[in-house]
Amino acid sequence: MQVSGASGVCLAMHEFSRRIAFEDVPTAGAFMVFGAHRDMFEVARNFAHFFAHESCGFCTPCRVGTSLVVRCMDKIAKGLGSQHEIREIFRIHRLLNVASHCGLGQAACNPVFDTLNKFRPAYERRLRSLDFEPAFDLDGALASARQMTGRDDPGAHFVGESQGFGVHP
């Protein structure tokens, strides 16, 4: 359950006994309830896009940070994520939380931070490696050159090659 809009607190089932109060879970009066069938990673990714779109761009941390979070989340969604992205999100969260000019930036990472803490498997099952992967499809990055040269030989592809460090034989 997301209490009080995108920048509010995300509560998991085990927290349903908590109280709506200034001292515990503050709210502006809004609720979003997500059924157990919902993918909380996709919920958080949607919120991340929302904040990047809403950022006015005045201060550095929010302007760049919200877009960096989007890139991390999109990378994970594409199946190219690794523990590196999880660490990055925490790092960006710590910065935005204290250095942003206004509440939007300060709270922009809340939904990602909360869901990472409470629904971590929703992230982890998408990760490709424990180490690091490029954010883009390497073979796709050769498509333009393949088209221009008319080549399609094995050397013109990255096929059959596992990506990244640690997964090679």
Binding site: H84, D131, F132, P134, A135, L138, A141, L142, A143, S144, A145, R146, M148, T149, G150, R151, D153, G155, A156, G164, F165
Partner: peptide, 23 residues
């Protein structure tokens, strides 16, 4: 003619710093 010898490595559409490819 655009060189298309299989001996030549194909260029990527963008140039990347090495930390965008491996740790």
């Amino acid at each position: 003619q655009i060189p298309n010898d299989p001996e030549l490595p194909l260029p990527l559409d963008k140039v990347h710093p090495i930390d965008e490819i491996v740790r």
